[in-house]
Amino acid sequence: MSEEQVSNDPLHGKTLAFIMEQLVERYGWDELARRIRINCFAINPSIKSSLTFLRKTPWARQKVENLYNRTKW
């Protein structure tokens, strides 16, 4: 991609860790667990354990990315 081109991907340049930190700050773990039914959000949640799970589980990562894209910042 040249300097003149701009990515249309809203997640371009955002790491999964950044996305998770933003969502936890915005919603908190309880609300995240309510919005996305993933045990690592509901049981002893942490950014580290969530990242480990999300990196291995494409469907869960997609749900997190979709929530991030739908959130009005």
Results as ranks from 00 to 15, higher is better:
50 S>H: 03
30 D>S: 13
32 L>M: 09
18 F>A: 14
55 R>P: 04
12 H>D: 15
32 L>K: 06
58 P>V: 01
66 N>D: 15
64 V>L: 04
51 L>I: 07
61 R>Q: 10
68 Y>P: 03
28 G>D: 07
2 S>K: 10
14 K>T: 10
6 V>R: 04
29 W>M: 03
21 E>P: 09
68 Y>S: 04
23 L>N: 02
5 Q>W: 09
49 S>Y: 05
17 A>L: 08
71 T>R: 02
39 N>R: 06
53 F>K: 04
67 L>D: 02
3 E>M: 15
22 Q>V: 13
47 I>M: 00
8 N>I: 04
46 S>T: 07
34 R>K: 08
34 R>I: 03
63 K>S: 13
33 A>I: 00
69 N>M: 14
52 T>R: 08
58 P>K: 02
51 L>G: 04
25 E>I: 06
46 S>Q: 03
43 I>E: 01
63 K>Y: 12
51 L>K: 02
3 E>D: 11
59 W>H: 12
47 I>W: 01
39 N>M: 06
42 A>P: 03
7 S>G: 04
42 A>F: 01
8 N>W: 05
22 Q>E: 15
38 I>Y: 02
48 K>T: 13
64 V>E: 00
66 N>S: 06
45 P>E: 05
46 S>I: 07
1 M>H: 11
45 P>K: 05
20 M>S: 06
40 C>H: 12
60 A>S: 13
72 K>N: 11
32 L>D: 02
24 V>L: 01
70 R>E: 15
52 T>D: 07
4 E>Y: 09
18 F>N: 10
18 F>E: 14
10 P>D: 05
62 Q>H: 02
52 T>Y: 10
41 F>N: 00
13 G>A: 07
26 R>Q: 14
11 L>S: 09
20 M>L: 14
71 T>C: 00
3 E>K: 15
60 A>C: 00
56 K>F: 14
57 T>S: 07
52 T>A: 11
67 L>T: 01
18 F>M: 11
63 K>P: 07
48 K>G: 12
9 D>T: 02
55 R>M: 09
70 R>N: 14
41 F>A: 00
25 E>M: 14
28 G>F: 05
38 I>F: 06
47 I>L: 14
23 L>C: 02
36 I>K: 00
55 R>F: 08
9 D>I: 01
50 S>T: 04
44 N>R: 10
45 P>C: 05
70 R>D: 12
62 Q>S: 12
26 R>T: 07
50 S>W: 00
40 C>L: 04
72 K>S: 12
72 K>Y: 09
12 H>W: 10
31 E>D: 11
18 F>Q: 13
16 L>H: 03
52 T>C: 11
12 H>I: 05
22 Q>W: 02
32 L>V: 05
10 P>I: 09
58 P>I: 10
37 R>H: 12
15 T>I: 13
6 V>N: 07
1 M>I: 10
45 P>T: 06
18 F>R: 11
44 N>V: 09
39 N>E: 14
4 E>K: 11
4 E>M: 13
18 F>L: 12
60 A>M: 02
54 L>E: 02
21 E>V: 02
18 F>G: 08
59 W>Q: 11
